[in-house]
């Protein structure tokens, strides 16, 4: 206990720990454990589910303040999906995109609660999401277009001499989508939380080192507050960016440019 209080590392808040684990030789020695990230993901899932269920205003046509929030999220994601993918054919992917948006948003916001844990700051989680999306879009393209899917890597109207190079570049950029999509989300959340942690460490040290320094520490405190506001914005923007890019990747798989 005293150990982890005294360790001061900006990455300390992201450590995955076992909260509850089962180490019995059952189910083929499967290590069943509830980690803190699992707990927070479960809380996020419950929160999304409960909010979706409760803030419905009893299916009345006249909305109240709670159901309007859900409706505006719906309208936002719907406009993204219809704007990025096809107006008609893209609607199939709407539930997936809605859940993706809400899931990432709620996880980001849970990370913003003091003393809690940011699940989306974990690269493994975001990479698994992004790899799934891009891999799914690739499979979609293959199943829809067969081997013509490779025409995605050939830019329109390029000279024949440059073709191998351009195909190479396009292929690498296609592979980089996997990484960039997840990396963007996790890096933003991770860096934001780390920045807040480091700045607050500085400010805490300044404020506790003297009476005059306490008032001096109010200036960095203002910065931290500003960064907190920025983080709140980033939590929304990153969820939106993730969904927008997922939609555009699916559109590439569907329409091949």
């Amino acid at each position: 206990m005293s150990n982890f209080i005294n360790v001061i590392s900006p990455l300390d808040q992201f450590e995955v720990r076992n909260l509850l684990s089962l180490d019995a030789p059952i189910l083929g020695n499967l290590s069943l454990s509830l980690t803190n990230i699992g707990l927070y993901l479960t809380i996020a899932g419950y929160l999304v589910f409960i909010i979706g269920l409760l803030s419905s205003n009893n299916n009345k046509i006249v909305p109240n303040a709670w159901s309007i929030s859900q409706e505006s999220i719906y309208a936002t994601v719907h406009s993204i999906v219809t704007g990025q993918i096809n107006e008609k054919n893209g609607q199939v992917y709407f539930p997936f995109m809605y859940v993706l948006f809400v899931f990432i948003l709620v996880n980001n916001l849970i990370g913003m609660v003091p003393y809690s844990f940011a699940a989306t700051s974990h690269f493994i989680l975001t990479f698994s999401l992004s790899f799934t999306v891009v891999l799914g879009a690739t499979i979609l393209g293959f199943s829809k277009h067969g081997l013509k899917f490779f025409s995605l890597f050939v830019p329109a109207g390029c000279p024949l001499a440059l073709l191998p190079l351009l195909v190479m570049i396009e292929f690498i950029s296609y592979l980089a989508r996997n990484v960039s999509l997840g990396l963007r989300l996790a890096a933003n959340i991770l860096s934001g939380h780390m920045l807040l942690n480091i700045l607050s460490g500085f400010t805490y040290n300044i404020m506790t080192s003297g009476f005059l320094f306490f008032f001096l520490g109010l200036f960095p405190l203002a910065f931290i507050i500003a960064f907190s506001g920025l983080e709140l914005g980033i939590a929304f923007i990153q969820a939106q960016v993730f969904v927008v890019l997922s939609c555009s990747y699916i559109k590439d798989g569907l329409d091949l440019h």
Binding site: S31, T35, F103, A119, L125, L129
Partner: peptide
């Protein structure tokens, strides 16, 4: 914890 969190994330 990789498998753990991926399993949790995808199940949910």
């Amino acid at each position: 914890f990789f498998v753990n969190q991926v399993v949790f994330a995808f199940a949910i």
